[in-house]
Nucleic acid binder design. Sequence first.
RNA 1: GCGCCUGUAGCUCAACUGGAUAGAGCACCAGACUUCGGAUCUGGGGGUUAAGGGUUCAAAUCCUUUCAGGCGCGCCA
Length: 583
Amino acid sequence: MTNLIQHFKKNFFKYHSDFQKKYQFNDKINFNQINFDIPNNLSHGHISTNALFIYLKSSTMEKTEIIKFFTKKLQSSSNVEKVEIAGQGFINIFFKKNYLISELININKMGDNIGKSNIGKNKKINIEFISANPTGPLHLAHSRGAIFGDVLSNILEKVGYEVTREYYINDAGVQIEKLGDSLYVRYCQLINQNEIDINEMNYPGDYLINIAKLILQNDKKKWLNVNTSKRKKYFENFAIKHILKIIKKDCKNMGIKFDLFVSEKKIIKEGIINSVFKKLKKDSLLYEGVLEKPKSINDPDWEPRKQLLFKSTKFGDDADRPFLKSNNDWTYFANDSAYHYYKIKRKYNKIINIWGADHIGYIKRMKSIVKVMSDDKIDFLIKICQLVNLKKDNKPIKMSKRSGNYISIDEIIKEVGSDVLRFFMLYRKNDTQIDFDLSKVLEKTKDNPIFYIQYAFARSNSVLNNANKIFKKINYKNIYNLENHIQYISDYEWKIINKILIWPNIIENAASNYEPHKIIYYLEDLSSMFHIFWNKGNENKDLRFIDENNYDKTLSRLYWINSFQLILKSAFDIIGIKPIKKM
RNA sequence: GCGCCUGUAGCUCAACUGGAUAGAGCACCAGACUUCGGAUCUGGGGGUUAAGGGUUCAAAUCCUUUCAGGCGCGCCA
C-alpha cells in the first residue's frame, strides 16, 4: 500500500464497525461527508479527519466518549505515533517514522509503476479533443485543448481507466465547400488563370498553395475543363485529406496520438441521425416553431422563420435549437447529436469533451441531447479551455484571421520546443486564460517553472553521479537497515519524504477532478523543497547529500532522492516532457 | 436582454471541492558565492478572498442580491 489515505481509511472504517457494535449506534452517518485530508501544515499531522464533527452531528453521545474511543483505537495501530484532537474537533494523526520509511521503500520498489492505482479499473472513458475543422493547420488555441486532453487521458490511464482518445473531423458542410473553392482559386492562380478574385477566398493561408501544387503536378490543367460539381467534390476531398495530414503531423510534433478519428461525413452517410430523429419524435421533443431574433443579430433583414426545433429549453437551455436548415440539410447540431449518439452506443462509463471557450454557449444543448439519447444514463462531462494570449517580450502578438496569418503550432514548437509548450499549456487551470510569452518561457532562471523543475532533476542526478564516483557504485535503491538510517534523516528531509509519499494522492486528486494542473503545482513544490535542502547543505555541511566518511548517512539521503527522481520521471511522463539529466 | 465562466497580496496564479493561522512566484527591501552545479537559497513587509445578506461546528468555496471583466446567443462549425 503506498497511498497513505487509502490505507488509513480502511483501518478507520474497521474502528467504525467496532464503534457501532459497542454503542449500538443508530447509523445515519453519511460516509461521503467524512474527509481524510493531508494537512498543509505538518503540525496538523500526516493525516487529518473531520470524522468527529460528523459523529457529533448524528448522535447524542458525549463528545469526550467518542474521542476516547477513537483515540484509543487509532493509537493501537502500529503505524501511529500519536493522535491529537485539535481545532474545533479535528482528529490529527501522526505516523511513526518507521512506517513512513516503509512507505518510501514501497515507492522505490514500485519504480515506474509509482502512482498507479485501480480506481478506474474496468471502466471505459471516451475523451474527444481538438476536433478542429480540417480547414487549416492547428494554431495555439487548439494546442491548449489538445495538450489538456492528452494529459488528462494519461492521468486517467494512470489510475486505471481504459481511455479512448478521439478526434471528430468536421469534414462536411458549408465551410468545407468554401475550403474546396479556396483551393481551386490557388490552383487557378498557379496556372495564371486570374479570372477568379483572390480576395474572395475564405481560406487565404499559404498552406493551400502547396496543396494546389500537388494537384497541378498530378493532373496538370485538367480541372479547368471538368464540370463544376465533380471538380468541387475532388477539391474538397483533396483539401481535407492533405490538411488532415498536416493536423496529424502537428499532433505528432506535440506528442499526441489519437486512438480514433471519426468523420462527420461518415456519421451522415450511415444515417445515424435517423435514430436520433425517431427517438426525439417519440419523446415529443421536436416541433415546427419560430425562434425569436437573437440579441446578437443586428441585421435589419432578419426575418422570423419556421423551422424544425429541438426542445432543449426543457433541459434548461435558453432557447430551443434548430435541427434542420432551410435547404432541408441537418444543422451542425443535428449531426453532432448523431455523433454523440454514436459515442453513447459504444458503451462508455464516461464521455468527456474538451472544448474551447468559444463553444460555451453550446454546452447546454449538447448536454440536453446526450441526456435524452442516453436515457440519462451516461456520465457526460464538458471541460472548457480558456483562451491563450500569445506574447513576445510581454507584448501581445496580433493574429489576423482575415489574412489567415495565424502563428501555427509548427512555428511555435520550432521556437520553444514541444516540452515547453506542453508545460505551459498545463500551468494554469483550464478555466483561466493563459499568457504564453515566447521569450519568457525560454528563460533559464528560477522564475521559469519548467526550468526550475528540470534544474532540480539535473541537480539530483548530479548528486547520484558524484556519490557513485566516491563510493564506487553505491546501491541507493536498497536500504538494508531501517533503524540505522532513520537516525540520519533531518527534520527538513522528513518534510520532503512526506511530500514524496503523497504523490499517489496528487494523481488521484488530479484524476477525480479532471485537473492536470495539480500535477504541475505539486512538481513545483517538490522541486522547491529539493533546492531548499540543497542550499541547507551549503550552509551546514552536516546536511549535504554526500558525506564521504559516512556511507550509511549518504545512503539515507540518496534513498529518498531515488524516489524523488522516480516521481519526477513519472510526472514528466504523464505531462509528456523529457527529464534533463544534465543541462 | 439572457446564459456560462471569472473576480483571492501591486502583478500572475494556488488552495486537497465545506476545514484549522488563505499559500506560491514575480516585483520591492535586506542578506548568503574557497558551491555535492549560486541557473540557487535565507529573511522581511504586503489580504475585510469585488460588495452586502443568508445556510452551520466551520465559507474564498454552497444559496441570494448587486457591481466589474471575458466568452457565447437563428439555416458557421
